[in-house]
Design a binder for these strands. Structure first.
Length: 811
RNA sequence: GCCGGGGUGGCGAAACUGGUCAUACGCGCCUGACUUAAAAUCAGGUGUCUCCUCUGGAGGCGUAAGGGUUCGAGUCCCUUCCCCGGCACCA
């Protein structure tokens, strides 16, 4: 017998699959040809950062196992691949190395593609698409224009997170503890003219449609948390002197009588007007200027401070004037940028009141009577709490009081029920080079004018210097920058910001369905055929970014009539992190291990199987190469035993031999694990057990069936060796063989092992016929000498029989 | 603080709806075979303690800790501890 040499057989079969176009799939030529059993398998597309690491290997092998499993269960499986090729890292690498981002990224893509082929993943490469290709971003721009026309993309001046090191705006999702996620520099708040997508308009739709999704609970919980819907009331406070109304949002209208002061965010547009003409004016200006220079981190950690404006607002409930302050613990981005402060029932307001000696009025009392006045804020909701010091509402239970106060406010035109969200609109403009240009031209006369569809794509221009200087690099190419206004023909100026790469990845799954379409982004009937994605696999780190943005995109496209569905990803699975040195493996952390070396020494099949064998795919795992040897050993064993069986074992079947039974049990187990339980480590164990048993008797009459079963079941994990052995067993094209089906009759045995317990403890086991009546089982149990020893003449009070399992005697 | 996930051998981990002495499968380790030797390969062993008539056998204790439900709990309930992740000045 020849030796198992993965370096020989793996490229051989990869070539066969390519020649046979084994994993390519065409779109249906007509509706009649459509396959109702179509299945869209998708993993999150990789950022082409140089080489693959073990995290990618886990991600894509997982998808590969599902792909093979579904294909062999009769599904037409779409399993495409492409690259998230725009973005900062490529640009930063270009700056460092002095090349062009395009050259760097294209070299990386080529390398990664070859690594992917070497791993034998079943990918339809005809559908490859990458964000940076004009054929792709032409349609990113086209979609942007549709969003713009519909009012879902707009410009506004807004405080943004500005990273002074990367010289760019950073999305909320990528500010971690007040620092830029990429470089760790503390971010600053800056007011800038920015592009936004109106994702907040879809906050409720995004929440409501969660119940259509077969997603992990925790992912949905993270999104709910992120959207942060709170119900409460808007209450209007009046500034008599200035004839001004100031609305606030509160979740605690029940505490309105306890509102003893009022606070505006420093960025609030009315601050200037309120302070004007008071003796506090200079102090207010100074405070506003001072807080503007504070980093987000400082704002969040320092002791609360603020300044009195010299003005008063009237509490609509009490009719009393309360002082208006400005303080940066109030955020302009949430609610109305102003709050009613209730120090008795809010810890933040209490801290502020203590510092500045503002009055504290308690208006809610717990059921057990008055709490200690000096204790600080009583903010928790408790059973049976009641309103006090609240005029006509005193004595009411707090929840009822809240409702009555809102009613009362409504009838006096001073308030109404309201909902507020934590979610902000998605800021997507970036002052960087390597991204999709925004197809807008600014004209002095016409304002912002969309680039006409027929002029798309707006190609990314060549520039001399990508180095960001706070001004977008695109603006440095003046030949590109200044163009005639499409509307009036006078000189206009192109938008020089580029798009966030999350725009590119919010629709790539649609382009894969119809990747070569040069008339449209995609054909609706084709995306409606494949979409939504039946199984999406990717990291949970995208819960509030990519996954939320894509859902938003699809909802808008649905309303624009571009697609016939409202959710992109029907079912979602998160693979765990592959960690190294305790930290998640990633290029930015510099702690990556790639598969190349291991593929070289052990073969792709061993690497694929090992990464899934290491543990449950949805849990984090610490990368270690110890153990890969075990998988390599298993594959060599499989090779040896199957080869041996192929030449020596007889061909006739033995329908109820021990190996046949074991093979059917293994089919049942592997099918259930992959198909229903989504557990990818235990199928390998199960096949190992089968091979171990086969190894003990490789020339048994049913050895051949056991060998064929083992090869067939391991195929999704180790497709190359499986294909080679399948051929040696005298068959062809395992990749398109139907998935084996367990024979239920063979899983049922005519005898079973009866477990005999005394007081719940196992004392003996007997092999008994399956059809014995209960009474007989009990008799046999009692008759066991070991049971006799335990019974020791004691009286049996109860006997519990679990059919086909056990007898428990209670004494 | 709030919301999720998790704690099982020396290690990665099994045990799917409470029911076959919990620890499958693999790693590591130990013993043996083959070998001049090593590697590779193959065979066997491997939670812990106690006892016995000791090439074998019997029993106790063991799934973070404590309590509960049940004939029976790694699995269900309560309390506590620890680890990981998300959110957190969001009114």
């Amino acid at each position: 017998m020849d030796r198992y040499e993965p370096q020989q057989i793996e490229p051989k079969w990869q070539q066969v699959w390519e020649d046979e176009r084994a994993f390519y799939i065409s779109n249906p030529e007509s509706p009649e040809r459509a396959d109702p059993n179509n299945f869209y398998m998708l993993e999150m597309l990789p950022y082409p950062s140089g080489t693959l690491h073990m995290g990618h290997v886990l991600n894509y092998t997982l998808g590969d196992v599902i792909t093979h499993y579904r294909r062999r269960n009769g599904f037409s499986v779409l399993r495409p691949m492409g690259f998230d090729s725009f973005g900062l890292p490529a640009e930063n690498a270009a700056i460092r190395q002095g090349g062009h981002p395009r050259d760097i990224i294209e070299r990386n893509i080529e390398h990664i593609r070859s690594e992917m082929r070497r791993l034998g993943w079943a990918i339809d490469w005809d559908r490859e698409a990458s964000a940076h290709e004009p054929e792709y971003y032409r349609w990113t721009q086209w979609l942007f224009l549709r969003f713009y026309e519909a009012g879902h993309a707009y410009r506004k001046e807004a405080p943004v997170n500005w990273c002074p090191k990367d010289q760019t705006v950073v999305a909320n999702e990528y500010v971690i503890d007040g620092r830029c996620e990429r470089c760790g520099t503390p971010v600053e708040a800056r007011n800038m003219e920015q592009w936004f997508f109106r994702i907040t308009a879809y906050a409720d739709a995004l929440l409501d449609d969660h119940d259509q999704l077969d997603w992990p609970d925790r992912t949905i919980a993270i999104q709910k948390n992120w959207i942060g819907r709170s119900e409460g009331a808007e209450v209007v406070f009046r500034v008599e002197d200035l004839d001004l109304d100031l609305p606030v949002f509160t979740t605690r209208p029940d505490t309105l009588f306890g509102a003893t002061f009022f606070v505006l965010a420093p960025e609030h547009p009315l601050v200037e007007r309120l302070a004007a003409g008071t003796e506090r004016e200079a102090d207010v200006r100074k405070y506003v200027r001072h807080t503007a220079g504070r980093s987000t981190e400082e704002r969040e950690t320092k002791e609360k401070d603020g300044v009195f404006t010299g003005r008063y607002a009237v509490n609509p409930a009490t009719g009393e004037p309360i002082p208006i302050w400005v303080a940066d613990y109030v955020l302009m981005e949430y609610g109305t940028g102003a709050i009613m402060a209730v120090p008795a029932h809010d810890e933040r307001d209490f801290a502020f009141a203590e510092r500045y000696g503002l009055p504290v009025v308690r208006v809610v009392e717990p059921a057990d009577g008055g709490a200690d006045e000096t204790e600080g804020a009583f903010s928790a909701h408790t059973e049976g709490e009641r309103l006090v010091n609240s005029g006509e509402f005193s004595g009411l239970p707090a929840p009822e009081g809240a409702a009555r106060i809102v009613d009362w406010l409504g009838s006096h035109g001073r308030g109404r029920p309201a909902v507020s969200y934590r979610l902000r609109d998605w800021s997507f403009s970036r002052q960087r080079y390597w991204g999709c240009p925004i197809p807008i031209i600014y004209c002095d006369d016409c304002g912002p004018v969309p680039v006409p569809d027929e002029d798309l794509p707006v190609l990314l221009p060549e520039v001399d210097d990508y180095q960001p200087k706070g001004k977008p690099p695109l603006a440095s190419n003046e030949e590109w920058l200044f163009v005639p206004c499409p509307r009036c023909g006078t000189v206009g100026r192109r938008e020089a910001d580029t798009m966030d790469t999350f725009v590119d990845s919010s629709w790539y799954f649609l382009r894969y369905c119809d990747p070569h379409n040069d008339q449209a982004a995609f054909d609706r009937s084709i995306v409606d055929y494949w979409m939504p994605v039946d199984q999406y696999v990717g990291g949970i780190d995208h819960a509030t970014g990519h996954l939320l943005y894509s859902r938003f995109f699809v909802k808008v496209m649905n309303e624009l009539g571009l697609v016939g569905f409202r959710e992109p990803f029907a079912r979602l699975f998160h693979q765990g992190w592959v960690r190294q040195g305790g930290a998640k493996m990633s290029k930015t952390r510099g702690n990556v291990t790639g598969p190349d070396q291991l593929v070289e020494t052990h073969g792709a099949d061993a690497v694929r199987s090992y990464i899934l064998f290491m543990g449950p795919a949805d849990q984090d795992m610490e990368w270690t190469e110890e153990g890969v040897e075990g998988i390599a050993r298993f594959l060599r064993r499989l090779w040896r035993i199957v080869n041996e069986t192929a030449t020596t074992a007889p061909r006739e079947d033995l329908a109820d031999g021990a190996l046949t039974r074991k093979a059917h049990a293994t089919i049942a187990k592997v099918t259930d694990d992959i198909g229903r339980r989504f557990q990818f480590n235990t199928p390998i164990s199960a096949v190992m057990e089968l091979v171990n048993e086969l190894g003990r008797d490789p020339s048994a009459p049913d050895a051949r069936f056991a060998a064929e079963t083992a090869v067939s079941l391991i195929q999704p994990y180790a497709p190359h060796i499986a294909e080679e052995l399948w051929q040696r067993l005298g068959h062809e094209r395992l990749w398109e063989q139907p998935w084996p089906v367990a024979d239920e009759a063979l899983l049922e045995r005519d005898t079973f092992q009866l477990v005999i317990q005394v007081n719940g403890r196992v004392r003996d086991r007997l092999e008994v016929p399956a059809d014995l009546p209960e009474a007989e089982l009990i008799e046999r149990a009692k008759a066991s000498p070991r049971v006799q020893a335990q019974l020791d003449g004691k009286e049996i009070r109860q006997a519990i029989v679990v059919p086909r399992k056990l007898v428990n005697l209670v004494v």
